[in-house]
């Protein structure tokens, strides 16, 4: 086997690792919502898409500095997450899971339609092109490296928040026994709203990172939503650590599979792996202990 082959395989593995960080960030938001509120936001990636448009519109159309547009994008999605909970999820909290899925599925198509009406179907981009740089014979993209570092930092910060703060402890506690939360002086509704805002904010952060790498169009959520959902299922829905690990496994299938064959084949292999997982370990590779 030639050195040439090895160095590009290594590049694929590194790109997989970088993609894994981003997918892990997406999975964290979706998993957090599911783990705490027991509802799957099928429209999660579409919310992220709205965040990407928000950033693009503020930066390109309104001339905001990029970092200000990023901050506004995150804030917008935090508000959108809280609003989604308040107006869409709360009324169906006691309903059958299938109804909850359908209603967030409805929001998915609603957001796509709204984006199409507001921004059209043409591809948009920020016009920001971050350089790539070479290490030896490998070409690495700065945008991907930044995305990876920021995603991991955000995951770490979320972890610290959940494990150290009072609010974070309450967020972990409420999924274990909601009914007695008032005896602790906790208003469950407020915890749900806060969790939803955090979930939205994480989608907003993912939007900041993706908008540096991808063009924006109304259907871009479909490139990330199904993968994110499958990663969460593979890691054991609601299991934050499982989702984190599964994101890296999945990303390697995409990156290395895509390198060995063709880019599209990476996804085919990854989805076949997912389906096989569902036969072999339907509770997820890293199932949550009950």
């Amino acid at each position: 086997m030639s050195d040439f082959f090895d160095i590009f395989l290594l590049e694929a593995v590194i790109n997989g690792l970088l993609l894994g960080g981003l997918l892990a960030l997406l999975a964290l938001g979706l998993n957090l919502i599911f783990g705490v509120i027991d509802v799957v936001w099928i429209c999660y990636a579409e919310m992220m898409m709205i965040g990407m448009y928000t950033i693009w519109w503020l930066h390109v159309e309104q001339g905001w500095p990029l970092l200000a547009a990023f901050a506004a994008g995150i804030a917008t999605l935090a508000v959108l997450g809280a609003a989604l909970h308040q107006f869409i999820i709360r009324p169906v909290l006691a309903a059958e899971p299938i109804n909850q899925l359908l209603v967030t599925g409805g929001v998915l198509f609603f957001l796509q339609a709204v984006a199409t009406v507001a921004f059209g179907v043409e591809f948009r981009n920020l016009g920001v092109r971050l350089p790539t740089f070479a290490i030896g014979e490998m070409n690495l993209s700065l945008a991907r490296l930044i995305a990876f570092a920021v995603a991991l930092a955000a995951i770490g910060a979320t972890w610290l928040f959940l494990s150290r703060s009072y609010m974070g402890t309450a967020i972990r506690a409420i999924s274990q026994d909601r009914a007695i939360m008032p005896l602790m002086g906790v208003d469950p509704g407020r915890i749900y709203l806060t969790t939803s805002a955090i979930g939205g904010g994480l989608a907003g952060l993912a939007a900041c990172l993706l908008v540096l790498q991808y063009d924006i169009h109304p259907a871009i959520g479909l490139s990330f939503g199904p993968i994110t959902f499958l990663i969460c299922v593979m890691g054991g829905l609601g299991n934050l650590i499982g989702g984190f690990l599964a994101a890296f496994v999945f990303a390697q299938f995409i990156a290395v599979g895509g390198f060995m064959f063709q880019l599209e084949w990476g996804y085919v292999i990854a989805f076949v792996f997912f389906i096989a997982t569902m036969f072999w370990k339907p509770e997820g590779l890293f199932a949550k202990r009950r």
Binding site: Y166, T169, A170, R172, A173, M184, G185, V186
Partner: peptide, 10 residues
């Protein structure tokens, strides 16, 4: 410890 922490939430 986290259970006790929940008791000190207010």
């Amino acid at each position: 410890e986290d259970n006790l922490k929940m008791g000190a939430y207010t």
